[in-house]
Design a protein around this nucleic acid. Structure first.
Length: 867
RNA sequence: GGGCAGUUAGCUCAGCGGUAGAGCGGCAGUUUUACACACUGUUGGUCGGGGGUUCGAUCCCCUCACUGCCCACCA
């Protein structure tokens, strides 16, 4: 490549290489490959979704794992796809329909509406996929799947039929979570409890058998009084025991005030409210259970959309449930039965999608009794599947231990239709055949169940039913699943059960749970708050690599991430820094891609660099082993910026500006060797810039992606390098102390503490930005002095500082050193420390004491020398 | 009501038994021939409070206080 530009310009580079990678089929997984397999499946994003920072985090991690595996010689399958997302997608299309054509889905009819959804999917389904490509994701796009693909849909139906045949799927009338906006049942997991500022209404009811005697009831939902078919007290409650078996007069609706029974039930908490509970079996889960235990009637006073029906009485019919609440309280007040209203904070379940309070509702739904729950628990408990961080194991186990049957039917149109058929004549045990559970129609006169399946009922097959037989043979079970902890129940747990049931194996070995990305104030990213930056804007600003690297560096394992744009700017800066380091190397002449530093005589700096590279590789390996991606990023950052650029290159310049060919050759070899490895190590985090530099610097003519993974070498470092840099730092500090600008050329001198320094004088001179650097036996008159581990360094300041001032400054240093010595000596003087602490620790303190003493001695000598 | 996290420099976070760290920000200086998306120097902390274990605790134990998540049928 010709000379590379002064700063890294990501846009063109990213487009060029992504197109090349696709063209060359780099991401395509070959089931016949002899290489060891490494596989993962993407958590399929909603087909209508757009990329969020959460996706960026999640998919960057997956890409890092996939790319690292390729470098390490694995045959990698990263299987992508999208989810049909039943409610979410249907809602979006319905909203559009209402806006554009003022129509509901019922105006179109089922088939025409589904046609519209498919059109919508074709139009918008590709968006998020393209965004993932912009991010650099190395998915095997030839295998892209959709949860409504014909063959996948077939699998979903087969599973339903199978579970039905096994008696695990059943239909029943149950209390379910009903969303009055989406008009469908929801699973327990789709209900989000939210704290609410409500009102606790106290009202009284008259005991029928004892006119004039009233029981007081506390409720948050007076609008359901019309559906009350009983009143319950705790049978052990002495206040109310005697009323059990009697009746009370239900006050509402006004035109229908029947006597309803008082029952005794242990579910009543006599600490709460008045200890008397109104029982509304049709509108509350607990009440429904109490009703069943005592044979109470079920009186549903609401329509599916949350308005009151005619059973609620003339005053209420048609009213929304919240309007009805106010009105019910008002009528109770008029009746003189309302005792008080008090402010009350409680928790109300909200529909995840529609964000309205769910309504417990009795309806006929399909349920699944989960298969393999015990095995699924065991798989994690016994370490067959490992969770990172492992604390999620407890959460997972607790859920499985208390698992409830899953309501899998949804009253939607967009989704997998339930493969159950009813005879059109209508089912009666006498005249009809039973409903049939099968995929294809039994024939004329049979109609399919109108409900569809919960979206997650298809997602839970994702890990295996996205693969054909050959693929599965090579790549299943997958190595790792990367996902957010928010779907541990929705998806992770269910996939484990499905995997065990249908493949006899766990679907993945490791599960890595990412953190949740929040804004600077710690709030969740959301559309309504407008606090969610568009990842594509960020990519335009800092490049895909900058975004990836910046995000990964601040994404600690299992902690939520407070996102701020400055963090990805740091990512960009890092890429640019690395870019320029490579640029600097290029300016020194051609690269040797196979450079072998061991064939050269290396400077102490070059040797130390290689040792630190080894340490960095170890640090990176440890990071990967523990899925600590931020540690890996930090190791790369520290090495590239701190070790390579700040410490090494600056010193190496002395070799390039000097005229020792052997030394220069050794330094170049060390750089080439190091850069090659850094490019490889960095590639999973920053795929584009590394590919560009790989080719640009001449490390290879084929893609970097399959070019191997660095081994840890065995170079021994050199502690003199640390001493050298510490001395430089001290000397620069001296310059600052006397307010001398860093570009001012001065005649420095040094009294070396060791002979080795003679070889490194050019480097020292360069780093001090010295005009000249003389080796002397005594500090020149009128010089400022600093005492360093490599010797005494003098800064000539004749006319700026006199001996007396300098003596005062050094005396200050002496004081500091004496304080340090005092601290260490105090420690060593402690009998308990010397006898109690490990010998190595004590020895460390002794050594520290000696070092400080040497420093003190040198300082005293320097002061003496000043006269 | 249970459970799980977190509380360290102005901000975002590392560290998790032996002299408190990074980045950003702030301050001062530098356009020194890779990089001002940079370099140099520097300023910031009784590591949430209180107990305990230990020769020694930011790190282990107990307890309290906030903050955030998850689970749970308190009307």
């Amino acid at each position: 490549m010709s000379e590379i530009p002064k700063s890294y310009e990501p846009t063109a580079v990213e487009e060029k290489w992504y197109a090349r990678w696709l063209e060359d089929g780099c991401f395509v997984a070959d089931p016949t490959s002899p290489k060891p397999a490494y596989s993962l499946v993407i958590p399929p994003p909603n087909v209508t979704g757009v990329l969020t920072l959460g996706h960026v985090l999640n998919n960057t991690i997956q890409d890092i794992l996939a790319r690292r595996a390729r470098l390490r010689g694995h045959e990698v399958l990263w299987l992508p796809g999208t989810d049909h997302a039943g409610i979410a997608t249907q809602t979006v299309v319905e909203r559009q329909l209402r806006k554009d054509e003022k129509k509901t889905r019922h105006d179109l009819g089922r088939d025409a509406f589904l046609e519209r959804v498919w059109q919508w999917k074709e139009k918008h389904g590709g968006i998020i996929i393209n965004q993932l490509k912009k991010l650099g994701c190395s998915c095997d796009w030839t295998r892209e799947r959709f949860t409504m693909d014909a063959d996948y849909a077939r699998k979903v139906q087969e599973v339903f039929v199978d579970l039905y045949a096994k008696g695990l799927i059943y239909r029943g009338t149950r209390m379910v979570n009903w969303c009055p906006v989406s008009l469908t049942a929801l699973s327990d997991e789709e209900v989000i409890p939210k704290p609410q500022k409500g009102v606790l209404y106290h009202f009284k009811v008259e005991v029928v058998e004892e006119p004039g005697t009233f029981l007081e009831i506390a409720t948050t939902r007076p609008e359901t009084i019309m559906g009350d078919t009983g009143v319950a007290v705790n049978p052990r409650d002495p206040r109310y025991q005697r009323f059990i078996g009697l009746h009370v007069r239900r006050p509402l609706p006004l035109d229908n005030q029947p006597a309803i029974p008082i029952v005794g039930d242990d579910a009543v908490d006599f600490e709460f409210g008045t200890g008397v509970l109104k029982v509304t079996p049709a509108h509350d889960k607990v009440d429904y259970e109490i009703g069943r235990r005592h044979d109470l009637a079920v009186l549903d006073v609401m329509n599916p959309d949350g308005t009151m029906n005619d059973l609620a009485g003339a005053d209420f019919v048609g009213l929304d449930r919240f309007e009805a609440r106010v009105k019910a309280a008002a009528e109770l007040a008029e009746l003189g039965l309302l005792v008080k209203e008090e402010a009350y904070d409680n928790t109300v379940g909200f529909s995840e999608r529609a964000d309205v309070p769910i309504e417990p509702r009795l309806s006929e739904q399909w349920f699944l009794r989960y298969p393999q729950t015990g095995e699924a628990r065991a798989a994690v408990r016994d370490g067959l599947i490992r969770f990172f961080p492992d604390r999620w194991e407890k959460v997972y186990d607790h859920w499985l231990e208390n698992i409830q049957d899953w309501c899998i039917s949804r009253q939607l149109w967009w989704g997998h239709r339930i493969p159950v058929w009813y005879e059109d004549s209508g089912y009666t045990p006498e005249t009809s055949s039973a409903p049939r559970c099968q995929i294809d129609s039994p024939g004329e006169g049979w109609t399919q169940d109108t409900d569809v399946l919960d979206t997650w009922f298809s997602s839970w097959l994702w890990a295996h039913d996205t693969m054909d037989a050959a693929t599965r043979a090579k790549f299943y079970p997958t190595n790792v699943l990367v996902t957010g902890p928010d779907i541990i129940f929705f998806w992770v747990a269910r996939m484990i059960m499905a995997g065990l049931e249908y493949t006899g194996e766990v679907p993945f070995r490791d599960v890595f749970f990412t953190g949740i990305i929040r804004d600077k104030q710690g709030r969740k990213m959301s559309k309504s708050l407008g606090n969610s930056p568009d990842p594509l804007d960020l990519i335009a600003k800092v490049g895909a690599d900058g975004l990836r690297f910046g995000l990964m560096r601040i994404a600690p394992q299992g902690q939520d991430i407070k996102f701020d744009e400055s963090q990805v700017i740091e990512g960009r800066n890092f890429c640019n820094k690395f870019w320029n380091a490579c640029r600097f190397r290029q300016l020194q002449g051609p690269i040797d891609p196979d450079a072998d530093p061991s064939t050269h005589t290396l400077s102490i700096f070059a040797r130390d660099l290689l040792a630190r590279l080894d340490a960095t590789i170890t640090r990176i390996e440890d990071g990967y082993a523990a899925y600590r991606f931020n540690d890996v990023a930090q190791a790369l950052y520290d090495f590239v910026w701190g070790e390579f650029c700040d410490r090494f290159i600056e010193v190496a310049k002395a070799d390039f500006f000097g005229n020792d060919p052997a030394r220069k050759a050794g330094t170049l070899a060390a750089i080439d060797y190091t850069l090659r490895r850094v490019l490889l190590l960095l590639h999973p985090y920053a795929p584009f810039i590394t590919e560009e530099l790989w080719h640009g610097l001449g490390f290879g003519t084929t893609t970097i992606q399959f070019s191997g993974w660095p081994e840890v070498g065995d170079t021994i470092g050199d502690s003199r390098v640390d001493a050298f840099h510490a001395a430089v730092s001290q000397a620069r500090n001296l310059r600052a102390t006397y307010n001398l600008p860093s570009n001012k050329k001065l005649a420095w001198s040094v009294r070396p503490a060791g002979d080795w320094l003679a070889n490194e004088l050019p480097a020292l001179k360069l780093l001090l930005n010295a005009e000249t650097l003389a080796v002397v036996d005594f500090a020149p008159a009128g010089a400022a002095v600093c005492v360093t581990p490599i010797g005494e360094i003098h800064l000539p300041l004749a006319g700026v500082v006199d001996a007396a001032t300098e003596k005062t400054r050094l005396a200050g240093e002496v004081k500091k050193v004496e304080a340090e010595i005092a601290k260490v000596r105090a420690k060593l003087a402690s009998e308990t420390f010397v006898s109690g602490a490990p010998a190595a620790v004590v020895e460390e303190h002794r050594q520290r004491e000696r070092q400080w003493e040497e420093r003190l001695d040198a300082l005293h000598k320097a002061i003496q020398a000043l006269g």
